[in-house]
């Protein structure tokens, strides 16, 4: 296996005494695609926000490339994040959205436009570069959000249910594309979803969470073959059934 990119050690977080993360530890390998699965409210978003530095853990440690980044500013962690609701700058054109963060900083100002255009081209958005986000479809807007993150060259991208607001056809298309981009850029991806099929299709490894705890983290095959407990089992069975259903649909 590749090097360890991110090492999460004993993260704990409570909101007003209610636990949201309970002693969570795991490693993420360089260039891998890790999905996080789990029911709503189990702490997935909380974990992601702590990883990128938008939220402080009560205790625990985050190491990136062996370096302790637990208390480093969110902007300096070399990570990007993509939200379910796109969170684009509605008042700016697609191109502006992508180049804005580069343009306002001295050391990235030069060549910002070219970089932004190249990313837009890669994501098939060039023809929309002068449109406002409001004029685009959901799938296109999410592409812009991904482009805006990619242009800053992060080595880790976090996704918080990025496809939940999209229709099935768009999801399938964007899913394939995401996988290609990840390979191409070699970016490590941590991807929250509650679509199990999506997790199985995209991931090198899957992490299952329940009630603020990490239950199992393993390859898709191992999760199916040896689920850690009944929860994972029922969950995977359901997933298999779904997969078979969709296969049947496909065959027909």
């Amino acid at each position: 296996m590749a090097d360890i990119k991110l090492s999460i050690k004993n993260l704990c977080k409570t909101y007003d005494k209610l636990p949201a993360l309970n002693d969570v530890s795991f490693d993420v390998y360089d260039g891998e695609f890790l999905s996080i699965l789990g029911p709503s409210g189990c702490g997935k978003t909380t974990l992601l926000r702590i990883l990128i530095g938008l939220l402080h853990a009560d205790s625990g440690q985050i190491l990136k490339d062996g370096e302790d980044i637990t208390n480093i500013d969110a902007a300096k962690r070399g990570m990007g994040i993509v939200f379910q609701n796109y969170a684009l700058f509605e008042n700016m054109s697609v191109l502006k959205n992508v180049e804005y963060a580069l343009k306002i900083k001295k050391d990235t100002k030069d060549g910002a436009r070219e970089k932004a255009l190249a990313i837009l081209e890669r994501l098939g958005l060039l023809e929309h570069k002068d449109k406002k986000p409001g004029e685009l479809s959901g799938g296109q807007q999410q592409r812009v959000a991904i482009a805006r993150t990619l242009v800053l060259n992060p080595d880790i991208i976090l996704f918080d249910e990025p496809m939940s607001a999209l229709d099935v056809a768009t999801r399938l298309m964007l899913r394939d594309e995401l996988k290609k981009i990840q390979k191409e850029f070699g970016t490590t991806c941590i991807y929250i979803t509650h679509d199990q099929e999506e997790a199985f299709a995209l991931s090198d490894r899957i992490m299952v969470m329940d009630k603020s705890c990490l239950i199992q983290i393993d390859t898709p095959e191992n999760i199916i073959d040896s689920p850690a407990n009944d929860y994972v089992k029922s969950f995977v069975n359901e997933n298999l059934r779904k997969k078979i259903d969709s296969l049947i649909k496909y065959v027909r």
Binding site: R49, I52, G53, L54, A74, A75, K76, R77, M79, G80, I81, F83, N85, Y86, A87, L88, F89, E90, Y100, A101, I104, K105, R148, L152
Partner: peptide, 18 residues
Amino acid sequence: INENLEDVGKTMGIGRVR
């Protein structure tokens, strides 16, 4: 306005005044 915009700003290093 989108609730995640501040987060986008923080992670992309866009200052608050900006």
